[in-house]
Simulated assay, not measured.
Amino acid sequence: MTDPSDETIAVGRSLVARGSGEMDYVTEPVFGPQFKVLIARADRFVVLDPSAVSFCDSAGLSVLLGGGRQADASGAVLVLACVPEPLRRILEMTGADQVLRVFDTVTDAEAVFGG
């Protein structure tokens, strides 16, 4: 996956980051630490837009869930928006959609958090 901080926009108290490529065991050693830095930078909210993610395995899912835990521990919130259908199915099948909030669009997520 590309470095999500490469495509990051600050909107109010939130960071909107767009990732692309694959979230898997091959990219996790690079993507995982970058994702943690992104969450640490957030003032309050991180909206991850994975619409250009082409593949996600258990390692990628683990990074997302770990990011959610890190955000919670720091008083921030991590949400997903514009989730492609294959990734949405993975989130639903694993129950991760019950842990990570998922929005249809970035605008929907920003509306909830006040952008």
Rank of each mutant, 00 (worst) to 15 (best):
M1A: 14
T2N: 13
T2H: 14
D3R: 01
D3Q: 02
E7A: 12
T8A: 09
I9Q: 14
A10P: 08
V11P: 01
G12W: 04
R13N: 14
S14F: 00
L15A: 02
L15N: 00
A17R: 00
A17D: 03
R18L: 05
G21N: 05
G21C: 10
E22R: 14
M23R: 02
M23P: 10
D24G: 07
D24S: 07
Y25F: 14
Y25L: 15
V26K: 09
T27M: 03
E28C: 03
E28S: 08
P29G: 01
P29C: 00
V30T: 15
V30W: 05
F31M: 10
G32L: 08
G32H: 13
G32V: 13
Q34N: 10
F35D: 02
F35V: 06
F35Q: 02
K36Y: 11
I39R: 00
A40C: 04
R41P: 00
R41D: 06
R41H: 04
A42M: 08
D43M: 05
V46E: 04
L48Q: 00
D49W: 06
S51Q: 13
A52S: 15
S54P: 00
S54E: 12
S54G: 13
S54F: 08
F55C: 04
C56S: 08
C56T: 12
D57N: 04
D57F: 03
D57R: 03
D57S: 06
S58C: 11
A59Q: 08
G60S: 12
G60C: 13
G60N: 07
V63Q: 06
L65D: 09
G66C: 07
G67Q: 01
Q70E: 13
Q70A: 13
A71C: 07
A73T: 11
A73L: 14
A76S: 11
A76D: 08
A76E: 09
A76K: 15
V77N: 09
V77W: 02
V79E: 00
A81G: 06
A81N: 01
C82M: 05
V83C: 01
P84Q: 09
P84K: 08
E85F: 14
E85G: 12
P86I: 05
P86N: 06
P86D: 06
L87E: 04
L87F: 09
R88L: 15
R88Q: 11
R89M: 12
I90Q: 11
L91H: 07
M93Q: 12
M93Y: 14
T94F: 02
T94N: 03
T94K: 08
D97A: 13
Q98M: 11
Q98N: 12
V99I: 15
V99N: 02
L100I: 14
L100A: 11
L100Q: 12
R101V: 05
V102H: 03
V102T: 07
F103Y: 15
D104P: 13
T105V: 07
T105M: 03
T107R: 04
D108N: 06
D108M: 00
E110P: 04
E110C: 13
E110S: 14
E110G: 08
V112E: 13
V112W: 11
G114A: 05
G114F: 02
G115R: 14
